[in-house]
Nucleic acid binder design. Structure first.
Length: 846
RNA sequence: GCCGGAGUGGCGGAACGGCAGACGCGGGGGACUUAAACUCCCCGGCCCCUCGGGGCGUGUGGGUUCGAAUCCCACCUCCGGCACCA
């Protein structure tokens, strides 16, 4: 424990180092983004390349967890890297603050949701600061702030004006526990995404955003998302669920009602033997009015309404249905088809009516068997007779039979032909169906942005005038959900005059789904406090699309689809100049612990605070990225954290060894000539350049942080051995210093505090955060000696250190003189010689 | 069923047609220590061996290639998404 003159303490103590640097950055305002929109004055936008680096904003439910740490560390590394590369970097942070958890916590504790939320935000903010994230705190936003949700409401009204937000009755998903309706996307396997309760279907009048109008655009613009993970694109494609088919117009046999259907198999139209309506189909009641079947049909409809979503959508359930006593006419051949009501027909896909072709559709076949309805073949595969009976639905390829003018055509040709025929007769046309449903955004809960609409008996739903925004959340006595929004319990809020006719009217009391809030927050960061508009066109057009978006794959459909939709709408409104918000997306894997996803309910949470306290924020940051590929789910390892800390200890010791006293100065890259004659020094220099190149590529192009850290570890290991070497002289010392410096500089994005400390000890200034990112000396990446791999018949036989750039003949001669090679080719004939210069020789023998 | 992704030491993983197992964790041995911890050094795919080396190895089986963890085909397993969507 000798006192020494070293500027650094002997022991690395993060508790001493980290707060000091955090203060320093704050004083310096180091991570302030380039100009964003502020009222009145705004400086010019930078004319450098920009980098908008964004992580999905946290939900302030309590504190941040390891998943957040990993997410924000990745963003931080990219932001630091791009900043030091000279880009104008924008790296903001905010809070997705509305939503059920804060409200439920408020109900439990008797506090107001705003109080709970503010406390949670304060807590999260302090954690983020403690981990040293390089965030532009000037642009911090909360979606629950009236300053923010004013503009959420404003955007809603723009959609309302365009008919993209509308109120209508539909069978909707209802969570009996949360006492609110849910979007389709928030129902997972028939259960509420939030609380896991089985979802019910209810016929209710609700607010919808017409995302289906954008179904095709959402598919088409995926072509712009070149840097999105394939699986996210696939999930979105599946969710949108485009299928091509035709609309075919059926009529009741008495000619009183039209019943169009959507089918993907118009080619099988001659095979239709019955006709189905969804229980919710609006014509069901009319069609059975006064008929003998009326009672049975209405009872069936009521029974279907009682089913849960999970029951209703169980494909293995027997096919039930009831005959209406009515018939429709098949437009292609005039046949009368009996009309049944069946609960496997969905009202919200296609038209809620289906032509049933049991011969070529598995569900219709099962229904026909269950209810003794005829099955007819209209497609015969190669080698099958046209009248061969069907024991199951045939859905494969073949030629049309028993189909009049379609006979003999292949399936695809028949589809085209029949679509044309229908169009010519005015009985239908080729069309496209989507699985995607409109987005149900109204919620019967308190803690969300009020929907800015006033209901008037004469004028209908009337938008709140823009100048009256925001519609503030009113104070209420009781936040608890009762199936109706708590906002309705505040009479002053509820009763207002109609803005159009001044007659007594009442406010809409539902609030908006929180996914509405998070569908445009990335735009608001560019103008967080602007009071005249949600953002400014030229500023968003400069910063957007986001250059790198990072978040969890659980948002692959929900948030990412909604945000894409919003951007397209805003584009069509002329408010932004781009159609896609996120150019590059990275979805991170989850952190598991003790074999399961970390979660409070499982009691297997490792607290980031705890790791910061025991090992330091830098160790935490380093470890979450060193664990393994950032996209993969990986098991947390307590030992692994210690390993990360040990590495920082080694780096600390290395810097102490190379900068033993005050007054050190940053050294230039030594020239290879100056190191001539000291092979270890030259090797170390080359290693530095190779690592610079690798780390730059791993961060910049590959998103491979764990290999970047590995590379720096290799460099530190090599430099530490050199520092401990007793021989090597001035040359080796020079190279070692340069290596330590390089390692510190490259590691900065991962571990900014300790590297800033070490950088000053090495004689650098206290602004490593803006020190230019190192550039590898290409000439040093070219080796003057290389390892030549020598194979015989593709098997490794020997290795040879050899000068680079030798001719093929020289390489062959060298290879063929090796004893092991001679032994391997002894007595055999060399039939081929493969030479890859500077790399390998392969002798093929027989 | 359809669509995507992945299978490499005891573990996390590396190697993006050319040395399989970098880096780290764990393990073994040694130095330091009264002892231990820390730290440092050495050894760690499997099987043979005359200690020089040899054989086999990246889920399985084929193929392409001078050469395959890597490319192609088939299969198996796991993970994720969609699925009564007509």
């Amino acid at each position: 424990m000798s006192a020494d003159s070293n500027i650094l303490p002997e022991r690395y103590d993060p508790a001493q180092v980290e707060p000091r640097w955090q203060r320093r950055w704050e004083e310096e305002d180091a991570f302030r983004g380039e100009p964003t929109s502020r009222d009145g004055a705004r400086a010019d936008l930078p004319d450098r390349p920009k980098a908008y680096v964004l992580e999905m904003l946290p939900y302030p439910s309590g504190e941040i967890h390891m998943g957040h740490v990993k997410n924000y560390t990745m963003g931080d590394v990219v932001a630091h890297f791009r900043r030091r590369r000279g880009d104008a970097v924008f790296h903001p942070m905010g809070y997705d603050a509305f939503g059920l958890p804060a409200e439920n916590a408020a109900i439990r504790t008797g506090e107001a949701p705003a109080v709970v939320t503010d406390r949670n935000i304060a807590r999260i903010r302090s954690q983020l600061r403690q981990i040293g994230f390089a965030i532009d705190w000037h642009t911090e936003i909360s979606t629950a702030d009236p300053e923010y949700y004013r503009w959420t409401q404003w955007i809603f009204l723009r959609m309302f004006e365009r008919g993209l937000a509308e109120r209508r009755e539909a069978a909707v998903n209802w969570c009996p526990r949360d006492q609110t309706v849910l979007a389709n996307e928030q129902v997972v396997d028939g259960a509420c995404e939030r609380c896991g309760t089985q979802v019910e279907l209810r016929q209710l009048t609700q607010w919808f955003l017409r995302i289906t109008d954008y179904a095709q655009a959402l598919l088409d613009d995926m072509a712009l998302l070149v840097d999105w993970p394939e699986r996210v694109l696939t999930m979105q494609r599946n969710w949108i669920g485009r299928s091509e088919g035709a609309r075919v117009l059926f009529r009741t046999d008495d000619g009183t009602h039209e019943l169009p259907v959507f089918t993907t198999r118009p080619d099988t139209l001659f095979g239709a033997t019955f006709f189905l309506l969804a229980p919710e189909h609006p014509l069901v009641g009319t069609l059975v009015e006064g008929r003998a079947e009326q009672a049975a049909v209405l009872e069936y409809v009521r029974a279907a309404a009682r089913e849960s979503l999970a029951e209703r959508s169980d494909a293995d359930k027997p096919k039930t249905g009831v005959f209406t006593g009515r018939h429709v006419v098949n437009p292609v051949n005039g046949e009368r088809l009996p009309v049944w009501v069946a609960d496997y027909v969905l009202m919200d896909y296609g038209t809620g009516a289906v032509m049933a072709v049991p011969g070529h559709d598995e569900r219709d076949f099962a229904f026909a068997r269950a209810h003794d309805l005829p099955v007819r073949r209209v497609i015969a595969p190669e080698g099958t007779a046209a009248d061969a009976p069907l024991e199951e639905a045939y859905t494969g390829p073949g030629r049309l039979v028993a189909s009049a003018f379609l006979d003999g055509l292949e399936v695809d040709a028949a589809k085209t032909r029949i679509a044309q025929w229908l169009a010519d007769k005015g009985l239908g046309e080729a069309t496209v169906g989507y699985r995607l449903r409109d987005w149900l955004v109204s919620r019967q809960r308190y803690w969300g942005a009020p929907i800015p609409i006033i209901h008037c008996a004469t004028c209908g739903p009337v938008p709140v005038p823009d100048e009256d925004l925001p519609v503030l959340l009113p104070p209420v006595q009781d936040y608890a959900p009762k199936g109706q929004s708590p906002l309705a319990t505040n009479p002053e809020f509820l009763h207002v005059p109609c803005p159009r006719c001044a007659a007594p009217a009442h406010r809409e009391t539902d609030t908006m789904d929180t996914f509405v809030d998070s569908s445009w927050y990335y735009l608001r960061y560019t103008a967080p406090h602007l009071t005249t508009a949600p953002f400014e066109r030229d500023v968003v057009d400069y910063w957007l699309p986001v250059d790198q978006y990072i978040g969890g794959v659980e948002h692959a459909v929900l948030h990412l689809l909604y945000a894409r939709f919003f951007t397209k709408v805003l584009h069509d409104l002329g408010l932004v100049g781009f159609r896609e918000p996120f150019a590059r997306l990275f979805t991170q894997g989850m952190i598991h612990y003790m074999g399961a996803k970390m979660s409070k309910s499982k009691g297997n949470v490792v607290s980031p605070d705890d790791i910061v306290e025991r090992f330091g924020a830098d160790t935490l940051r380093l470890y979450v990225l060193f664990m393994g590929p950032a996209a993969d789910d990986i098991e947390w390892s307590d030992r692994g954290v210690i390993g990360a800390r040990r590495f920082l200890d080694r780096l600390w010791a290395l810097v102490r060894a190379v900068a033993p006293a005050e007054g050190a100065a940053i050294v230039e890259r030594p020239s290879p000539d100056s190191l001539a004659g000291v092979p270890d020094a030259l090797e170390l220099l080359r290693k530095c350049e190779a690592v610079i190149a690798k780390v730059s590529q791993d961060i910049g192009d590959r998103f491979s942080f764990h290999t970047a850290i590995s590379a720096v570890q290799e460099l530190v290991n090599m430099a530490s051995r050199a520092a401990a070497a007793e021989q090597g002289g001035q040359e080796l010392t020079q190279a070692t210093r340069y290596a330590a410096q390089t390692a510190v500089s490259l590691l900065f994005p991962f571990a900014p505090h300790v590297t800033s400390e070490l950088w000053t000890a090495l004689g650098g200034d206290d602004q490593l955060w803006r020190h230019p990112w190192p550039e590898a000396d290409e000439s040093l990446l070219v080796r003057d000696t290389v390892t030549l791999v020598v194979q015989v018949n593709g098997k490794l036989r020997d290795r040879l250190q050899i000068a680079s750039g030798l001719a093929q003949e020289e390489l062959l001669a060298a290879a063929r003189s090796l004893p092991r090679v001679l032994a391997a080719i002894d007595g055999k004939q060399v039939v081929r010689e493969v030479v890859v210069p500077d790399r390998l020789v392969n002798l093929v023998v027989r």
